[in-house]
């Protein structure tokens, strides 16, 4: 069992902007009287979250200097909290790059290694109390289709996916996607697997609904979140058609020894209770030229990633040579995550 104690001790500490505002008592006067209340608050504020961090601007609107200060504050705090040198990167969007991702559903064997690699890279909460995984892999049953079925069956009941037939006489029904499959060995004979994560939509519904605009799309195509400004309203979770976003209902459990100290402000830096998180295409890696953790780990090489604006990139070759589709293209979200078959 992974150790679970490391971050469970922060009882009285303020851990997010929302907590802070709540504790300040009155939302509307918080900005005026916040400082005074902070000084007179009988409960000590989270020991190492500074006054400046609570009152910092939305990252998107900060000057370069303010960004640098915010980053230094975090580096100091994380280094102290996790007992090792932690870096927080602030690399901006890459020039001339639009990130794209492609996944070969014919190759995927459903081994879930991408899920676990993502957790190791991106500092998600782990353990029984609160487990957060950004990638989910659905097991899809292969349909059976016989001539007898074609002619004999009536309406399907409420669940399942229709296989063949027509609106009045479906030939068969298979299971909907399964999350909790646990066979001894994968791939199984009667299944294929369908991994899903944030699609980095070009027209992201999550961005449209965010009331504080703390989630936004950068020009290189990555939809990011400034966790400090997240008020935890979870509108984006409701708006996302791909169930890509996760919420920290409790204090995240991130054991010190498992913490990945190479972080990005908008990516895998440790999150706090009450904020939303999701896949960021490993912004801390990809803006430095490195492949994402899930691309690297996939044992069958089903995952491809690159620059959509470079005509010689692998991702462009996939789009040119393979049979490609996007999930729920009808929603006009223009995902930058493609599925393909050979």
């Amino acid at each position: 069992m992974p150790k679970q104690d490391s971050s469970k001790t922060k009882d009285n500490k303020l851990t997010s902007r929302r907590d802070f505002l709540r504790s300040a008592g009155n939302y509307t006067v918080a900005s005026l009287s916040g400082a005074a209340m902070l000084l007179s608050d009988p409960k000590p504020a989270k020991a190492n979250v500074t006054w400046e961090e609570h009152f910092q601007k939305n990252y998107r609107l900060m000057t370069d200097e303010e960004k640098q200060q915010a980053i230094e504050r975090l580096e100091t705090r994380y280094t102290e909290e996790y007992g090792k040198p932690v870096t927080v990167d602030g690399s901006p969007s890459m020039e001339g790059v639009l990130f794209g991702y492609a996944l070969n559903i014919q190759k995927c064997i459903g081994c879930r290694r991408c899920v676990k690699a993502c957790v190791a890279e991106n500092n998600q909460s782990r353990g029984d109390e609160q487990q957060i995984e950004w990638i989910r892999v659905l097991r899809m049953e292969k349909g059976k289709f016989s001539e007898a079925d074609r002619d004999q069956h009536g309406y399907p009941e409420s669940f399942g996916v229709q296989v063949g037939g027509n609106a009045y006489k479906p030939a068969g029904v298979v299971l909907e996607g399964q999350h909790y499959y646990e066979p001894d060995q994968v791939p199984e004979k009667d299944a294929f697997y369908f991994p899903m994560q944030c699609m980095q939509c070009e027209k992201p519904p999550c961005v449209k609904v965010c009331p504080v605009r703390t989630t936004y799309r950068d020009p290189d195509g990555i939809v990011v979140i400034d966790y400090n400004w997240c008020i935890g309203c979870r509108m984006c979770i409701g708006a996302c058609p791909y169930w890509a976003r996760r919420f920290n209902w409790g204090e995240p459990n991130l054991p010190k020894e498992e913490m990945n100290p190479v972080t990005h402000y908008l990516g895998n830096r440790p999150r706090m209770k009450g904020v939303v998180e999701k896949c960021s295409f490993c912004v801390q890696r990809t803006r430095k030229g490195r492949w994402t953790a899930c691309v690297e780990v996939c044992p069958v090489g089903a995952r491809k990633f690159g620059n959509l604006l470079d005509p010689n990139s692998e991702i462009r070759k996939v789009l040119a040579k393979k049979k490609v589709f996007r999930l729920r293209a009808d929603l006009n979200t223009y995902p930058k995550f493609f599925y393909y078959m050979d």
């Binding site: 064997i109 995984e133 399907p156 068969g172 029904v173 909907e176 499959y181 646990e182």
Partner: peptide
């Protein structure tokens, strides 16, 4: 074939994932 990594935790209050394995079709 490989052994897969463990499935995600079940949501609190859910004992098993049998609902996923039910064929409701004809």
């Amino acid at each position: 074939q490989l052994r897969p990594e463990p499935a995600p935790n079940l949501p609190k209050g859910m004992d098993n994932a049998n609902h996923e394995r039910m064929h409701h079709g004809p």
